[in-house]
């Protein structure tokens, strides 16, 4: 799994400036539960320099829990997306995490192929 954290200045209807984008990878054998998602988000957010920024999260990524409950789960200030600007910011994070994930999988497949080739060669 890839979590992306983006530090963005927003306006009500759009993005003013993208300051920083960081990604963090996680792996697990099973689908993550709520607490693991919280941990992943917090870890990813830690990689961003500004530690006071409010973390905006997509409600669907949090198993559709309500916002009050959400706030109790995090150490930092969190909220769900509301404005168009917040939605655009989330959109960027989604694109980043998705493309990073694709890239990783592609690279991993390359490495796997190489390993297999080496194994074959060794057998010979």
């Amino acid at each position: 799994m890839v979590a992306a954290a983006v530090l963005i200045d927003i306006e009500p209807t759009g993005i003013y400036k993208v300051h920083e984008i960081r990604t963090k990878t996680f792996s697990s054998d099973k689908a993550p539960d709520l607490i693991s998602v919280v941990k992943m988000i917090e870890t990813a957010a830690e990689t961003i320099k500004n530690k006071d920024a409010v973390i905006v999260i997509e409600q669907g990524d949090m198993f559709n829990i309500n916002e009050q409950y959400l706030k109790t789960l995090f150490f930092r200030d969190v909220k769900f997306q509301e404005s168009i600007g917040e939605r655009r910011a989330i959109e960027i994070a989604h694109h980043v995490s998705l493309s990073t994930r694709r890239l990783l999988i592609k690279e991993w497949e390359k490495i796997e192929r190489k390993i297999r080739k080496n194994e074959k060669n060794q057998k010979k």
Binding site: P12, T13, S83, I84, R87, R88
Partner: peptide, 18 residues
């Protein structure tokens, strides 16, 4: 306002005057 943003955000890249 929240619902308005939800309706407008997907398909519109226009400026908004509130």
């Amino acid at each position: 306002l929240k619902v308005s943003h939800e309706i407008l955000w997907e398909q519109s890249a226009s400026d908004i005057i509130t």
